[in-house]
């Protein structure tokens, strides 16, 4: 099947699920507001607590932008995990694997459609960060933006893989919610959503930066002054995790398909 034809089919699924999301706009508004409030409050706390213009070479603007990017990366991924988990527990996964398009491709396209409205939060994050901290100074803005986007995409794919694996866990542990909770909270702390990684002591940061939790949020480092110096290392680390988790996901999926069960004889 030509790749372009397949991409168009996934594109159609994304558009349809996005359309379905908009048809439920009333459910999305409170959720989006809650996300904005949480990130806004965190940013405000930082802006209030910062006594100096920079801590540990991290400016207030960089810290706020970093928080915003990390928060954007975390938005809604858990729904992917929950969706797969529900499919497994309710047995609907057995029905969805019958389509000519691969199940995981369809659920990811479906999820992208559902989570696209999250990007509505982007202008608000930018507005908060600009109003409270200004625009961070970065060297070679074009190159930094490109590398930052690369890490953003890598982080999104890595997060997606982890959340799919967590969802598929339901094949073995029925309810993947506790494992999901542990991953999310760890990523929240080590992925830069609460504390920008650049603010951590260098020893701790050097260790944390090699974990997959941090690798999902490397894009947030793009607003730091030393980004271009550390970017090659971050890209390498992220690439290694992408390869490792890609292989692990392949193995888990193969094992999971063999455990497909039947609800109702």
């Amino acid at each position: 099947m030509p790749t372009r034809h397949r991409a168009r089919r996934y594109g159609k699924i994304i558009v349809l699920t996005l359309r379905e999301q908009y048809s439920r706009a009333m459910f999305m508004v409170p959720w989006l507001l809650a996300t904005l409030v949480v990130t806004g409050v965190t940013m405000t706390l930082y802006a209030t607590a910062y006594k100096a213009t920079s801590i540990h070479t991290v400016s207030l603007a960089a810290a706020l932008w970093s928080l915003g990017i990390a928060a954007l990366l975390r938005l809604s991924w858990r729904h992917l995990s929950n969706g797969i988990g529900e499919d497994v527990v309710q047995g609907t996964i057995a029905l969805k694997v019958r389509y000519p398009l691969p199940y995981l491709g369809v659920v990811v396209a479906d999820h992208i459609g559902r989570s696209t409205p999250c990007f509505m939060a982007l202008p608000f994050f930018v507005l908060f960060a600009v109003v409270m901290g200004g625009v961070p100074h970065v060297e070679a803005p074009v190159l930094s933006t490109f590398l930052g986007l690369l890490l953003f995409c890598g982080g999104a794919v890595l997060s997606g893989m982890v959340y799919i694996m967590l969802g598929l866990n339901a094949f073995w542990i029925e309810n993947a919610e506790p494992v999901l909770w542990i991953f999310e909270k760890t990523t929240l702390v080590l992925g830069g959503s609460v504390i920008p990684l650049a603010l951590l002591p260098s020893t701790a940061r050097n260790i944390i930066e090699f974990t997959p939790f941090a690798a999902t949020g490397f894009a947030a480092r793009a607003v730091n002054a030393d980004f271009l110096a550390v970017a090659p290392k971050l890209i390498m680390v992220q690439a290694v995790w992408l390869i490792l988790f890609g292989g692990l996901l392949f193995v888990i999926w193969r094992k999971a398909v063999r455990r497909l069960d039947v609800n109702g004889g």
């Binding site: 034809h5 379905e20 029905l95 389509y99 369809v106």
Partner: peptide
């Protein structure tokens, strides 16, 4: 016992979804 259509969208979109799924 299982629905395969998108519950919040009209049936016309359900046909489009299946069209995409089956290429």
């Amino acid at each position: 016992q299982r629905s395969q259509l998108l519950p919040n969208l009209p049936l016309l979109d359900g046909f489009e979804l299946f069209g995409a799924l089956y290429g």
